[in-house]
Design a protein around this nucleic acid. Structure first.
Ligand SMILES: [Mn+2]
Ligand SMILES: [Mn+2]
Ligand SMILES: [Mn+2]
Ligand SMILES: [Mn+2]
Lengths: 240, 240
DNA sequence: TTCAAGGTTTAAGGTAGTCTAAAAATCTCC
DNA sequence: GGAGATTTTTAGACTACCTTAAACCTTGAA
């Protein structure tokens, strides 16, 4: 039931990659964790021994239910910690990942649950990612990205799926935090940039970045979502 | 400049033992860290290679200035974290040590300084231990223990040098937190227990425990200390 | 002054995790 | 249905710790 921090990071990586492709290839894990493929193969064997993954040689791995549960518990830790760092300690949203990456292995369940209570049992981290419950469950949501929006349709930023501190800092300078009100004004052809209104201000944004910004279109009838319960705006964490 | 968590724990242990006896014997370190003497000898070699300790074979080790600086920085982390856990998250004072023991290795300097700011740049941890400065300095203070007090002389608890959660919990149930007002009423002979008044309530306390409770006698003229600046009562952290 | 007790170090071996280089399997594309 | 490219796994080594058992100092008491 208790794993090393290295194992925890592997599980987290595999879980994330699994959202894209199952089974997960050795090389995908290697590049995400910045290790050689040989190291990953060796670790995969240990994970399989511990019944955390199933491995088909030369084919890849998938998490077992036990592995997935552990992964989600670590992801919960990571995201709760990230939110604590921005909300309580005033970190910028581009600086929280590395800190949380280490703390997630040292914090006890009790600490995480106390932090979650302090933060009001939050649903999303500073980047808008859903925080798994303490029991290890998350909804799988498929939201449109900014370039998927029709022109002039209002929407709200929900999640910014960007890791790089540089990019996050840049997006922050454009006010593109979860909760921001956005509207696509124009999409340049041939994969060109988007003209977007963010909280009323006109911005131009590289398509590559825009694709990582997930939004919820404003429903025309009601101000909130139609089928889902009213969203609580996560509040722009650590604005510059 | 950056050490493994194991190295950090060795430095911390050696620093603490050095306050009692210099040089520090292999076996003292082994028992404090719950390791075999052989493991300690091996590690001492590595520490000496890194110029963190000086080792005289068969005699013991002492920290170099670099080693002491590192030790004090880790002790600062540990104590700031402990205070955060009691003050901000409502932990009891007997539960914070283990948690801090792990977090101290994962938290960045920036995190610790932000916590310290949040906590008002505190001077003492929940047990009353002095928190080294960010620069890595602490005053060495020698306070009397409870059994050193003359009968009927009022004093204030400053530090409770007890590790064991059981004992801490017990002392907490007697209100013996830093800041408590105490007065020894009677000392049973032959190493017997002490009768002590704690915040006005009569208590009986084993001498062994009383010896770990450091106090500052109230000066008869002024309510505060005479030479030192007024102490800020650390507030009874996590009272039951 | 010797010698045994007790603490310390060395020797040998183990686990977890990493790397490079080589071997093996799979994929791609003609 | 291969040949060659690409991935994956194996083999062999290395670092950081830890353990037990044996050898080695230091010391104090006879
Ligand atoms: Mn991590
Ligand atoms: Mn995040
Ligand atoms: Mn520690
Ligand atoms: Mn303490």
């Amino acid at each position: 039931m208790k794993h090393t921090s290295v194992v925890e990071d592997y599980l987290k990586a595999i879980w994330g990659l699994q959202q894209i492709e199952r089974p997960v290839a050795t090389s995908r894990i290697a590049e995400r964790l910045d290790l050689t493929a040989a190291a990953v193969t060796a670790m995969i064997k240990r994970l399989a021994d511990q019944k955390l993954v199933r491995h088909e040689p030369y084919r890849g791995v998938i998490l077992t239910p036990a592995g997935e549960l552990s992964a989600l518990r670590i992801i919960r830790r990571h995201r709760v910690l990230e939110l604590f760092l921005t909300e309580t300690l005033g970190y910028e949203w581009d600086r929280v990942h590395d800190e949380a990456e280490r703390l997630e292995h040292a914090a006890s369940d009790e600490l995480i649950e106390r932090l979650a209570r302090l933060l009001g049992e939050p649903e999303r981290d500073p980047h808008g990612s859903l925080i798994p419950t303490a029991e290890g469950t998350v909804d799988r949501e498929k939201l449109p990205a900014l370039p998927d929006l029709p022109v002039d349709a209002p929407a709200a930023v929900v999640e910014v799926r960007v890791q790089s501190p540089d990019r996050l800092r840049y997006l922050g300078s454009l006010d593109l935090f979860p909760g921001a009100e956005v509207m696509v004004r124009e999409q340049a052809p041939f994969g060109g940039p988007l003209s977007v209104e963010v909280n009323g201000a006109a911005r131009v944004l590289a398509r590559e970045l825009a694709e990582q910004i997930l939004v919820r279109p404003a429903s025309r009838d009601e101000p909130s979502g139609d089928a889902s319960p009213a969203e609580d705006a996560p509040g722009k964490a650590g604005a510059a």
